[in-house]
Simulated scan of single mutants.
Amino acid sequence: MKVFAFVFARGGSKGLPGKNIRPLGGVPLIAHSIRLAAELSTVLKTYVSTDSEEIAAVAKSYGAEVIMRPEHLATDFASEWHAWQHAIAFLHERGEQFDVFLSLPATSPLRAREDIENCLTALDDTSDVVITVTPASRSPYFNMVTRKANGDTHIAISGASITRRQDAPEVFDLTTVAYLARPKFILESAGIFDGRVKSVIVPKSRAVDIDDELDFAFAEALYKGKQ
């Protein structure tokens, strides 16, 4: 398989300004994804899609090629799926064809090489997409609720009476550790769950998704412990 890796990193981040190039363990956050891609023998090229010249400069310094993203795909309301489609179409227009699209978000710097290798193994002829998940700490069948403005509260998923967590169906949180897909599927579809989706389970210690200051502090503590 001809695998191209991608990191999608906007310049604007309200939850944690400048997070994509903020140092974690002395290394810019985005560089953790670029470095891991370089360790994978199946990955032939690594691209960073961004609207930021500053992020682009950091990406190039760590060996990634850069795809400058149009402004309309870099707003708070823009769908990353559309950024995926733009990156693939951009490369196809340059005559670059590949078999597997691998997204390695900068916000999951604690992922391991084996997580990605497991995803590559899972992407077979029966699947369009492979995502990563981690065991959820709460369940919509048991201890997650919906709440109305007047305070009325109900269990998120009602039905059979479940009074013990052990009786609830096993559920998982989606993670940003990795996404794999066929480029053709991305170009022709409106979202991940339009296709046949498989998942790979990642332990919580490697599935931290950095969105705000607290997430970063938690990731930093785990990273230091790992080192």
Score class of each variant (00 low, 15 high):
5 A>L: 04
147 R>W: 02
98 F>E: 10
34 I>R: 05
48 V>T: 11
55 I>G: 01
185 F>Y: 04
170 E>D: 08
164 R>S: 10
2 K>G: 03
227 Q>S: 15
8 F>A: 06
32 H>R: 09
27 V>N: 02
14 K>M: 05
49 S>P: 03
90 F>C: 09
78 A>C: 02
15 G>M: 06
179 Y>N: 02
209 D>C: 13
84 W>H: 13
48 V>K: 13
31 A>R: 01
27 V>K: 14
20 N>P: 01
68 M>T: 11
144 M>F: 03
212 D>T: 11
161 S>N: 07
205 S>G: 07
195 G>T: 00
82 H>N: 15
191 G>I: 08
181 A>Y: 00
62 Y>T: 06
132 T>Y: 02
200 V>Y: 00
113 R>N: 07
51 D>A: 12
29 L>K: 02
91 L>D: 06
219 A>H: 12
149 A>S: 10
109 P>N: 12
125 D>L: 09
212 D>S: 13
36 L>P: 01
151 G>M: 04
74 A>W: 01
5 A>S: 14
170 E>K: 13
62 Y>S: 09
60 K>M: 13
218 F>K: 15
161 S>E: 10
37 A>F: 12
113 R>Y: 08
226 K>I: 13
218 F>S: 11
220 E>K: 13
53 E>Y: 13
106 A>P: 03
144 M>D: 05
34 I>V: 14
45 K>Y: 14
84 W>V: 01
10 R>C: 06
94 R>K: 15
77 F>M: 11
215 D>F: 13
97 Q>E: 15
177 V>K: 00
123 L>W: 05
27 V>L: 14
158 S>M: 10
7 V>C: 08
57 A>Q: 15
98 F>I: 13
194 D>A: 12
99 D>F: 05
43 V>T: 02
130 V>H: 02
